[in-house]
């Protein structure tokens, strides 16, 4: 249930930011896409739109909002589920609604506004997707958006963090069918977040080598994962010295992608943006390094052994 940012810019008259602080984290989001732009369908720009902010605390984004709903920390999933019930006119008691930190009136008003919108959009940030419940919190908001389509047009979109996360996700999908959390150890892609996702694999210490391209898990991952990276041979490709590169056995300096190395980045709405290099770099691109490593590996004796071309039943 999603759309491109251009659709938001041209059509969305009801915008909800959930668990994010766009004023500080995605400053251009307001002006370029979500709030300010005038369009054929919203000629008065900001005046034709309503913005609701849902967060656990007051941030700088509150000022930009028409309605601020301060949800009690850790109650996002509950609140969304209450909303799912309310749009379907299921009775929920006042005391139960109060658990979410909001009043019946606030929620009734919110539901009425959602239903009255011509084109609604939820943007959700790390405040939703990275707190307790994680992927279920995002799933909840996506489900609410899907269910809102019984009344009006509604979409939901994650506000992705730094880097080309979306690009990795998109390419993994067309090459393997899955977005992330993939294992190739059986010769074909298998998917199981929690089992094959990087952080879980490292925390459990399931690997005997790590190859890291353009990421700095040493700065963001939990301690056991970092300890494991120190234990095994870790190879890092990065233009910069990072927490991870410092602990790595090998650090290959590469040309910064998008600045010195060409390629395609995917915007958070999966629109490809070709990047043309502005500066020359003495270092090879990530792609070149990976290709050369691959060529060298191909010269080693085949470790695959006898395997069928195709399997009809997977494990």
């Amino acid at each position: 249930m999603t759309c491109t940012l251009g659709e938001v810019k041209n059509r969305a008259d009801f915008i909800v930011y959930w668990g994010g602080n766009p004023a500080e984290c995605h400053p251009r989001h307001f002006t370029k896409y979500a709030l300010m732009p005038k369009s054929q369908f919203l000629p008065r720009g900001r005046k034709d739109r309503t913005m609701v902010l849902v967060d656990i605390r007051e941030t700088k984004s509150v000022k930009a909002s028409d309605v601020f709903l301060q949800v009690r920390p850790g109650k996002d999933f509950e609140l969304i589920t209450v909303l799912r019930a309310m749009i379907k006119d299921q009775p929920i008691s006042e005391a139960q609604i109060a658990e979410t930190g909001l009043s019946v009136e606030q929620l009734q008003d919110f539901v009425a506004r959602m239903k009255a919108a011509r084109f609604g959009v939820f943007f959700f940030g790390m405040g939703l997707s990275m707190t307790r419940g994680k992927h279920m919190n995002s799933a909840a908001l996506l489900t609410l958006a899907a269910e809102m389509n019984a009344f009006t047009k509604f979409v939901a979109m994650p506000m992705r963090g730094h880097g080309n996360v979306t690009g990795a996700d998109v390419i993994m999908r067309w090459q393997t069918g899955y977005p992330f959390g993939i294992s190739f150890n059986r010769g074909y892609p298998r998917y199981n977040p929690g089992e094959f996702s990087t952080v879980d694999v490292l925390v459990r210490g399931d690997t005997d080598c790590a190859f890291i391209i353009g990421a700095d898990p040493g700065a963001t991952m939990p301690k056991p994962a970092i300890e494991h990276l120190k234990r095994v041979p870790t190879i890092v490709l990065d233009p910069h010295v990072t927490h991870t590169s410092k602990m790595a056995r090998v650090h290959i300096t590469t040309a910064p992608a998008g600045i010195s190395a060409p390629g395609t980045a995917y915007r958070m709405d999966e629109i490809p943006l070709p990047l043309r290099p502005a500066l020359e770099s003495p270092y090879p691109s990530d792609e070149e390094v990976v290709r050369r490593i691959k060529e060298t590996i191909l010269k080693k004796p085949d470790w695959m052994g006898e395997r069928p071309q195709m399997l009809t039943t997977q494990v």
Binding site: G187, Y188, P189, M304, R307, Q309
Partner: peptide, 30 residues
């Protein structure tokens, strides 16, 4: 593809070799 991981699991799988890339068949093949 992103919406149908359950189908990817039950379909035929192509196994990587020196000359072939791995992949999955099914409703939305890779």
């Amino acid at each position: 593809r992103a919406m149908t991981p359950e189908d990817h699991r039950r379909t035929q799988a192509f196994i990587r070799s020196q000359t072939r890339r791995s992949g999955l068949g099914g409703m939305a093949p890779t």
